[in-house]
Amino acid sequence: MSDTLIIGWTTFVYLASFAFYLVRMVHGRERWSAPASWLARIGFAMHSAALLLRWKNSYDLGIGHAPLSNFYESLVFFSWSILFIHLILEGRSKIRGLGTFLMPVAFLLLAYASMVPGVNNRIQPLIPALQSNWLTVHVLTCFLGYAFFAAAFALGIMILLKSDASAGVGGRLRQRIPADDALEELLYQGALLGFIFLSLGIATGSIWAHSAWGSYWSWDPKETWSLITWIVYALMLHARAVRGWRGKRMAWLSLFGFASVLFTYLGVNYLNSLHSYF
């Protein structure tokens, strides 16, 4: 069975999980949350299996490398990281509502990977610049960071919905979202952990660039945008630590930060860049 086929199926499992999370939130019935969680777990298991299978397939083709080397693989891994963090957060914090906002992000990433014609899902051999162990560490840390930022983004949306008295679906929806303080603390932790991983990602990327291109920093658009994103989250952490920002303001910053993450990841492809093979 091909790994891309499993990924295709996983996409639908995530969509179904999202649907259950949504029904649970809109109807305010806790009983929908069990199937939602289970679907997320099943999807995650399929997703992990597909990643491992693809890894193995690349060795069978004689060009073995971790499945982290082109745009398709990065989309799939980004989505996997989001699920990984979602399941941990759900298990530890008992906040169920998170799935309503994180599953669609994971689903959209996979849908983009599987269905947009421009995304090449073939296993490709590594060009010389990518033949480095730092590639694996770099992509791993960057996308874990992005996934934590995605979690902070989802928590930000929850905080905004909760605090907005005029939210369409009304009071019931807000009841389903837990207390602000718990969300707030998680949002902060997500942003801080994302910041740590992004810092690691930038550092490993610099080490790699240092050995591949002869310079640890060359103001390439992708590098520059990762710095901009890093600064946005640094500002966010400072707004909280130095100026005491909480609640809605932090939530807006988490949305703003995630927009910067998405631009770093996708938008930069429209600027010319050393990283444009992503």
């Binding site: 103001w219 658009p221 520059t224 945008w225 710095l227 901009i228 600064i231 946005v232 640094a234 500002l235 400072h238 707004a239 130095v242 100026r243 930069v268 600027l271």
Partner: peptide, 24 residues
């Protein structure tokens, strides 16, 4: 002041952004 830090960081981010939009 922390205010200056926030202002400087914002301006650095903005400057960096300009450099990715304008050909260099």
């Amino acid at each position: 002041s922390g205010r200056l830090a926030i202002a400087l960081l914002s301006m650095i981010a903005l400057g960096a952004l300009l450099g990715t939009v304008i050909p260099q």
